[in-house]
Nucleic acid binder design. Sequence first.
DNA 1: CTAATCCTTGACCCCGACGTCAAGGAAAGA
DNA 2: TCTTTCCTTGACGTCGGGGTCAAGGATTAG
Lengths: 142, 142
Amino acid sequence: MRIGELAARAGTTTRTLRYYEARGLLPARRSGNGYRSYDEGDLRLLRQIRTLQDFGFDLEETRPFVECLRAGHPEGDSCPASLAVYRRKLDELDALIGELAAVRAKVGEQLARAESARERLAAEAEVPGGPEPECELGGAGL
Amino acid sequence: MRIGELAARAGTTTRTLRYYEARGLLPARRSGNGYRSYDEGDLRLLRQIRTLQDFGFDLEETRPFVECLRAGHPEGDSCPASLAVYRRKLDELDALIGELAAVRAKVGEQLARAESARERLAAEAEVPGGPEPECELGGAGL
DNA sequence: CTAATCCTTGACCCCGACGTCAAGGAAAGA
DNA sequence: TCTTTCCTTGACGTCGGGGTCAAGGATTAG
């Protein structure tokens, strides 16, 4: 199978396949006319790469899985190196999710604070002779 | 205050300040010799930008906050446009955290599956005359 | 024969937020 | 005066994962 067909069957582009080859991730045999030649095994490797990419793994992280398959193992994650990548990824995800949750909490806090400040101002505008802005109750200094 | 001092006081670099100016985010007055000249107000704007950047806001998203402060409001989030950015950010964060949690779950699942597969193989190796690999019990076909 | 696809390599473009280097002017201390 | 340090602008590099030409060779359909 040539590059166009493999790309189509994997739902990707020829550019992507050449890029993978340039990275040494998915080298191709060549037929007599210089065209790249792939087989079903290559399709399998490619699908492994794409699946992990969809999970947010970067290209280098997919390498152990690809090499594992190429070594004849039944699955890309049949090798210890692949499992190590899984574990590292889980740690990264946990850390990232934790950070994002913390940011989310802070932003939510800021929004609530800013909204209530606006409500206060609106209420004061409603009652013109009403409450004067009391010092040091909500103003961060200049 | 000149660019180096402002950068130092905000814990950033002169390159960053020139970049912000080029983006129209933090324009600078100029003193007679052509040097950029900043005041305490600029430091405040800069700190607002940096705080939001630390939260993962991109530069354009900080613009409403900066303009709000420059318009004389007490806080960068005293304006509706800033609140809108907060809300949009919360939605983005929720979506992202959700996606990451889903990926985390899938990766965790894959890891568990791959680990148990390895344990099975190890157990079979322990008992040489033991269980033959039973077809269609765990093998995704080639 | 010619046109239409497919293939090849090479090379530049994109995004965001700067880092880094270069060439030269200005200010400040010894 | 000399040296060091700070300032100016301009321009290119970085990173990841490719997109998008361009020029030319191979193959196939009509």
